[in-house]
Write a protein that binds this DNA or RNA. Sequence first.
DNA 1: CAGGGTAGGTTCGGTCACTGAACCCTTGAC
DNA 2: GTCAAGGGTTCAGTGACCGAACCTACCCTG
Lengths: 175, 175
Amino acid sequence: MALGKDYVTQECSIARALEVVGERWTLLVVRDALYGVRRYNDFLVHLGIPRAVLAARLQTLTSEGILEKRRYQESPPRDEYVLTESGIGLWPTLRSLGLWGREHVSGVKLREFRHALCDTELGPYGECRVCGTIVPVPDVVMVPGPGLDPDPADPVSKALLRPKRLLEPLVTEPV
Amino acid sequence: MALGKDYVTQECSIARALEVVGERWTLLVVRDALYGVRRYNDFLVHLGIPRAVLAARLQTLTSEGILEKRRYQESPPRDEYVLTESGIGLWPTLRSLGLWGREHVSGVKLREFRHALCDTELGPYGECRVCGTIVPVPDVVMVPGPGLDPDPADPVSKALLRPKRLLEPLVTEPV
DNA sequence: CAGGGTAGGTTCGGTCACTGAACCCTTGAC
DNA sequence: GTCAAGGGTTCAGTGACCGAACCTACCCTG
């Protein structure tokens, strides 16, 4: 946590959670990972985060068991960062935070989330209104909403314009 | 937001939300407000936050429309900080963040939340399993869980040991 | 009416996280 | 041999956060 200080007096699960994911950028890294971003460089260009900070976040998220670093090719050695179960568990939090931001801060719908099996838009708790069940994260499809810039500058944002399932690895166009 | 920098490149409701509530201490102030804390001094002793930071947070939260500052006595002039509708809208986020912290960080159940009308423990989305509805925040009762220290040092934590509804103003024992 | 207590701040020097830019290493392609 | 790309590390500067001290307005008590 920021300043090396924990919320030491707080006997509270929310405080414990914030000690892990409450630093600047951390939740945005997790969000990108949910959207399918896996590579250092993709996080870098999409978030506009300083390299040193990204390296630090990826390392703490890995050591906290939220991301898993895994080698996907040997030569040259390349690693990718994939969400663990614990990391996927942050989906409801990010979902409700996003809804709150849309409703009380930005006022614009930038993305929609739908149930892959029946194409119904999710309710506020990530449930499918038609099927009446909580939709598992891999069955959530993200599609761009009306407020989203149709021609973004960076290739990661471009790739995220295409409807895709959460967690499904992002493929960026080779420049 | 920290360092005067917003998440400027991010076209995303989550980023917008974090610009408002993503600073250190901010979400804990909102949590305390949900628990019924209203006064400067109660926030201070309960959070263990530096006075200057608390003053700054209360001011930004007020100007962002999440808290409302209101005079509750004239002489001496005293103000209290009460959640607005927008602030209450953060309940689902805090609820899911707390659940995640309990499940993936602390592992201990510190508090329980129940439906006031039927005394059923809430489900993960703040719904009542018996009534089948989302419980409005004022109808949520908070009761201490098994893992909570039964004899805390500060009077605010003491007062929070008694079951009470969310938002209901906290009354601290006069020392 | 002096002294003490309380609520709600502001000020201030020091520390530490974040920032942006530059540099480094390994590998593969030309 | 040279270049580019991916994935980092290093480093000086800035500014948020830290704790402690100080300030103000009002009330109560002797």
